[in-house]
Write a protein that binds this DNA or RNA. Structure first.
Lengths: 261, 261
DNA sequence: CACATGTGTACGAAAAGCGTACACCGTGAT
DNA sequence: ATCACGGTGTACGCTTTTCGTACACATGTG
């Protein structure tokens, strides 16, 4: 975000670590099969350096090679698995999400904040959903999503202000908010009412409804259901759905007897 | 596996890369919050070295610190996300899995082989399942699971033999196989019949039924449904379920028009 | 109170990784 | 045919990075 972003903050900085991860992250959805030079270009490493890292990662089993192209192996999932396994919340929430998804016939998702993004930590797909489902670990800009706004709204005022100062609102499809100031007003409203509705939150005719999962004073996560505009069988959002979601959120929080963390 | 496993194979080996990943993997399910010394112990690094890596990873946003303990942040999911996004199969298979899970009221899973483990790459939970669900990226020993056996059985003879030579069968709960020789016989049978049933595949009274997802000559993945022993509404495994699964597997393979890879 | 065990810091020594430079191989244009 | 190009892998002296010991401090337990 900042113009000259040099991440060599701490005096004990292991540059190789950064490079290692950069190489792994060079493999993206649109470009899953990369050559040495492509990786070198993507990571700003020398071709020789990139090659060293690629070979090392291959030896370690995180990359596979096919001809002169490299690709990620399933083993890279281990990192995320370690994180998810350490969290109790997804395990506990899953049955509740399943119920909700089955009952409403809409996808239900649980997410938390990481930097200025939300990250999906648990999800139940709508049974009748015959489309591409967004997967665990997916990352979306907080300001643009119902869960993100809900989570930001739950933050202390100071953090919220800092967020508003640095957020860059790109003209997405959402028509209700187009500036940081507007978003600030929206956040106030959300905080007061305790839930958040975002229309056209991703590009299709989709709406997202989110409520916080609170345990005592702190917010553990945000719970969301997608709402196909066409598919609201006479249910009122404010009178039917919000209470329903809040009840589920409460159940999750209750089941979550674990560490406060 | 081998007694003296020194992974410094290639002459261009970046040791820091290995260390970086080792530090990330030090965080396990039972020990998600670690101190510097704990990490040092787990990774066989000096305390100073461990600290350097921990600080670096914190700077990069992959670790968070709480007092003097470190923990993974959601960002580690990025690595796995990159892999999953690169695969077309999960996206394509998901709706089929959802259908299957909804129809049978049992969990449906898709997995592939990585080394001697299977890794879940897509999954639909049984709607009525109120238990802990196993998540994406989970890793289980191939020999012990229906999908694993199915995938091994699909391998060429030579690979299969190599696998049998090195596999270590621990006395799990499964009663049907207790030695590599028996497993070999079982694999032959599986290969011929084209499906695989494993009883008590994990410790509860659960069975797993798997079929291959084939596209042309090569096997893309294994498809599986769990079978609660109590919960077979008069359906015959061989006459009802196997054909059903095979049909779904065929649909998935058909939808998967993508690259041969 | 001492002792064990945790924490962070510093700095000289050692080694690890760097990246240039070179050789090769296929493809496509000239 | 051959030349230029863009890709590949390899080698090795130089520089930088990383190592890990050693020290100083904090904490809590016997």
């Amino acid at each position: 975000m900042s113009p000259t972003e040099e991440p060599s903050q701490s005096p004990h900085y292991v540059k190789s670590a950064e490079k290692t991860l950069a190489v792994l992250l060079a493999f993206t959805a649109d470009n899953p099969h990369l050559t040495v030079t492509e990786v070198a270009a993507a990571t700003h490493l020398t071709r020789a350096a990139a090659r060293r890292f690629l070979l090392t990662l291959t030896d370690l089993g995180y990359l596979s090679t096919e001809g002169s192209r490299f690709a990620l192996t399933p083993r890279v999932l281990d990192f995320g698995a370690g994180f998810l396994a350490g969290l109790d919340l997804p395990k506990i929430a899953q049955p509740h999400l399943n119920d909700l998804a089955l009952d409403l016939d809409e996808s239900a998702t649980l997410s938390i904040l990481d930097a200025d993004d939300i990250v999906y930590i648990a999800r139940a797909a709508a049974p009748r959903l015959h489309a591409v489902t967004v997967n665990l670990g997916n990352r979306l800009p907080a300001w643009a999503t119902s869960m993100g706004r809900m989570l930001i709204a739950e933050l202390p005022e100071t953090f919220q202000q800092q967020f508003l100062d640095r957020v860059e609102i790109s003209p997405f499809t959402d028509h209700t908010v187009s500036s940081a100031a507007e978003l600030g007003k929206e956040l106030k409203k959300i905080r007061v009412q305790g839930w958040c509705l975002v229309s056209q939150e991703l590009d299709d005719g989709l709406r997202g409804l989110a409520v916080p999962v609170r345990r005592g004073d702190n917010t553990l996560a945000a719970l969301n259901v997608s709402l196909h505009t066409s598919h609201l069988r006479g249910l009122s959002i404010e009178n039917d759905l919000v209470p329903r979601l809040q009840k589920v959120a409460a159940s999750i929080a209750e089941d979550y007897g674990g560490r406060a963390e």
